[in-house]
Write a protein that binds this DNA or RNA. Structure first.
Lengths: 226, 226
DNA sequence: ACCCAAATGTGATATAAATCACATAAGTTG
DNA sequence: CAACTTATGTGATTTATATCACATTTGGGT
């Protein structure tokens, strides 16, 4: 647990911006900041959920066991809450979170978090907005994944990672081929093949983990046409 | 718009149970109850969202346009809010809702709904709980759908409709084969074939729209094994 | 009750993707 | 740095499912 001063935190959530001095004091005494290295587990499916996790910096994969393999539900970039649903939707975590880059997470005692919802309407409203926005994004991904073919899904994922996570056409792809498959619901071999093909056609460039999107418009076309 | 008295409503949401007399008056003056017949559209993707819809009675499908066809995101049984995310996640509806049984829906002016969140913490908390529970359910379905094969998905869907919507092993299946396909992400032909096979093997019985689950344990095994 | 449109069932064929198999490359750890 | 384990690329084969085609059936509307 690191020294932390919630009131002066420069990376407040939209919800936390509505807390008053007294509430920040409560937050500070009932939360703990923890650093996770790449690959470390932040919370685990099946465990009791006693805290709300707030991802302050870093990138995380949210994942759960599926019928045949692990499923990566979403990639979350800080700042964002991580699994409010596992705290208020069920006593037991229904999914896991694992750092895919070095990450700092604030764990907030869920009783106090709940009290903020009870007592601070603007805080509650911002939490609701975040949950709602996530649901909409999930539904779009959900729909894509059940209808597009693999090349479309791979293209969509590359664009998404490039645009929403790294804001850059060149980036270190944070997942293994296997995890990429777990994310779009296919095998590592199929991902490999599609990436090779995109590379051969000079639509992307691959250097180990580093991927560069060379022809964004073509990739968007592939993504759109499924 | 029907006469309605929110305070005396017997089908209050978990959130609305926390409203006081004054708030019920506000709710009553800023909401309208509307009846929808089977097949009628309740709200439509692309339209501006100015109301929160509360499904008071009936059954509804929530759906959106996908890359190649319509996608049924979930089947919702009353009582439940219908698309809080389209109200607070985006100005424009990202998905549609259509009655699949006769249905009554209360439309609540979203400004007043927002005010309840601001001023009534227990109301806000129950909304958050509902959003969270839905997210967890969605993630499980999401994961199934990206990993199970068609027979598993058909079995899962039959069990889900039987258990969570009708609480009965015999029920009128509320979707066409095409819609069933839109729901699990497959073609109507594949759905037909799987249903025929389940019927041939006496695991279910089909009489037009009426489906009876004869061997629930076998169906569960098929669902589990994908 | 009749007509027409929509929904359904089922066989034949095509195809995307899984799986299997193996070689190679990259990381990890003692 | 050597020995592993893990990750990756790619060909060959198999398989589940989409698609196409067409015959029935069902159900709503006048």
């Amino acid at each position: 647990m690191l020294q932390h001063h919630c009131k002066d935190c420069q990376i407040k959530s939209a919800a936390a911006k509505n807390l008053n001095t007294e509430e920040f004091d409560i937050l500070e005494s009932n939360s703990a900041q923890v650093i996770f290295k790449k690959g470390e587990n932040i919370f685990k499916e099946g465990a009791l959920s006693l805290n709300v996790a707030y991802l302050r910096t870093g990138i995380v994969k949210v994942h759960m066991h599926g019928p045949t393999r692990e499923k990566i539900l979403r990639i979350v970039k800080a700042p964002s809450y991580l699994g409010i649903p596992i705290t208020f939707g069920d006593k037991i975590n229904q999914y896991s979170a694992t750092a895919i880059e070095d990450t700092s997470v604030c764990f907030i005692d869920s009783n106090y978090f709940r009290n903020f919802i009870y007592s601070n309407g603007k805080f509650a409203y911002e939490i609701i907005v975040e949950l709602c926005k996530n649901e909409l994004k999930d539904y779009h991904r959900y729909t894509s994944q059940s209808q597009k073919q693999i090349p479309g899904l791979v293209a969509e994922t590359l664009l998404c990672i490039s645009e929403t996570i790294y804001n850059n056409s060149r980036f270190n792809f944070p997942l293994t081929r296997n995890e990429f498959g777990d994310m779009v619901g296919t095998s590592r071999e199929s991902v490999s093949r599609v990436l090779s093909e995109l590379s051969n056609e000079k639509i992307i460039e691959i250097n180990g983990k580093e991927i560069t999107i060379l022809k964004k418009d073509t990739l968007e076309k592939i993504s759109k046409n499924g």
